[in-house]
Write a protein that binds this DNA or RNA. Structure first.
Lengths: 304, 304
DNA sequence: ATCGCTGATACGGTTTTGGCATCTGCATCG
DNA sequence: CGATGCAGATGCCAAAACCGTATCAGCGAT
């Protein structure tokens, strides 16, 4: 088994075509055909089904594909890490962040980070919380920024708290719900929930925390863009981090709702796979995230 | 980067000598020297420091070694799994088990499993609970058998309950502590604890469960062998699963202590990485573990 | 029926690879 | 203090592996 042939399989599976895969790899189509056959001979199993309109992986092909991708990622990460040890900060860094963090922390942290390490290829994925942890485990993302959950198993991840925020309800400017004084007044409002069916969003938690029943869901969305669209154009109510609701460009469209109850406190932090804690870039990124958190907190206090 | 050169590095790091590594790989020493140099050229970093009495990895070498081992493991596992899909049950299976499970479940499950799949190379590691999860995550073990913790993060692992047991106190035959009638009587006894300083063992939990303060630790051990040695030769008291204390070969040396309080209930189960749930051998092993659990429960009931 | 797409095959030249013999440096032991 | 043994490095040569070009064969759509 050679790395080149595995790369061939990966390309073939992802492209669904030998010729396209050959183009991506940078070799001729016959060479690719040979590589795949070599793999199939070595493992004594069919990996791809060939048809007149491309190739499709068999069950065995999918298994090998999954693991080959993981193996390749290990080696790429090794090369990056080694370069960093040598003093050159190069390589890729894949940041996962929940929507909240994407708006709050990431832009500010990125601003200083990319200036310090221009050779690092940054990639940012906005994902919901559950998807984040999954991607963190498979190694698809290197670091996750989001609300720190209570039930995180100790030992698996290294967690670094960054800032404390509060989720407060907000609605479109001019909405009748802005007049609400207590959470109970909002129980009849149409709410926008985030999350999945299985994992309740923050809004539900806020109601339960105050001993109220969570209102029937008005809408369940999986992206903050959708949430903001609904809130700013419809008559929905949704939970947003205090800093965003108050001081961002959203302020001209959306207003926080002043309630007698406090909002839902939320600890935002970075979650890193334990074994990556020592990687130089990751350490630096954490520093910049801390700076961003302080920056935001200061702005918050000045405003208050 | 080629797999052959990575294998060369792995061998060189593990053997600490180019010539020994060459022997293991099955090539000549000059060939190995060239491979290492090729890697170092490609990564532009020194990987090994050569001395007159062998080679030692640099920091970069260690990084590459770690990740290369992981990558190789992925590919080996892929090959095994593919063979299994094809119907041939071959390959390796690395089982991690806490001491309790090693004594209770593993022997019985192995007995039937190895008859059914003689071509699977089984490997069993006795490890304490915390070490188990770590090894499960890195992929060093494929399945872990042990007490199911309460705080396991959902989603990361697939958990399969196997049997329910009870941890009861036991002491050497003839020990004066055998006369104890309640847990309180044992508060002055010297206890053998398992676990680490950070993670309390089961014994401590039993006391706290009954509203008593856990006695000063007599000894803290990290292996059941040590625990049994202490109990059977000294005058210690320790917590053992009921089935072991009652019916194993230990019965001639160790007796359970009949207390008025019930023991500490414990759910024993198998923990598998989610992505491995579908691997054929793992599924089969789970079946055999279930059979072993039933077997043990039946014997337990007959005895009672 | 034919054209355009797919993957498969045959062959020849280039590159790479590995082994053998040999060289050099260091530590140890007599 | 020098001989000896073991460590890794180097040069050379033959064998093997590899890749690209040209070509073929099946299937679908036009």
């Amino acid at each position: 088994m050679k790395l080149a042939t595995l790369a061939a399989l990966i390309a073939a599976v992802e492209e669904g075509s030998m010729r396209a895969a050959a183009r991506r790899i940078g070799c001729s189509q016959p060479a690719l055909t040979r590589m795949i056959r070599e793999l199939e001979l070595e493992l004594a199993a069919p990996l791809l089904v060939r048809s007149s309109r491309g190739v499709l992986p068999t069950a065995q092909g999918r298994v090998l594909y999954e693991r080959a991708v993981r193996a390749r990622h290990e080696l790429e990460a090794a090369a990056d890490e080694i370069s960093q040890i040598g003093g050159h900060m190069v390589g890729k860094l894949h940041i996962g962040a929940v929507p909240l963090a994407v708006m709050l922390l990431i832009p500010e942290a990125m601003r200083t980070f990319v200036r310090a390490f221009p050779q690092i290829q940054l990639r940012i994925s906005e994902e919901l919380y559950v998807a984040q942890l999954q991607k963190l485990r498979t190694g698809e993302v290197d670091i996750t920024v989001g609300g720190i959950p209570d039930d995180l198993a100790a030992g698996e991840f290294y967690v670094e708290p960054l800032l404390h925020t509060e989720m407060i309800p907000a609605a479109r400017k001019g909405s009748r719900w802005l007049d609400a004084c207590s959470l109970q007044d909002l129980q009849q409002a149409p709410w926008v929930y985030t999350g999945t069916e299985h994992r309740a969003g923050y809004a539900r938690a806020l109601f339960e925390r105050n001993g109220l029943e969570a209102p029937q869901q008005g809408a369940l969305v999986n992206s903050t863009l959708a949430l903001l669209s609904l809130v700013s154009t419809g008559d929905y109510v949704a939970l947003l981090p205090r800093q965003i609701a108050r001081q961002s460009w959203l302020a001209s469209y959306i207003s926080p709702i002043a309630l007698s109850e406090p909002g839902l406190p939320l600890q935002v932090g970075a979650i890193v796979r334990q074994e990556l804690t020592l990687a130089p870039v990751v350490r630096h990124l954490l520093t910049h995230l801390h700076r961003a958190a302080h920056h935001i907190n200061r702005g918050d206090m000045l405003l208050a």
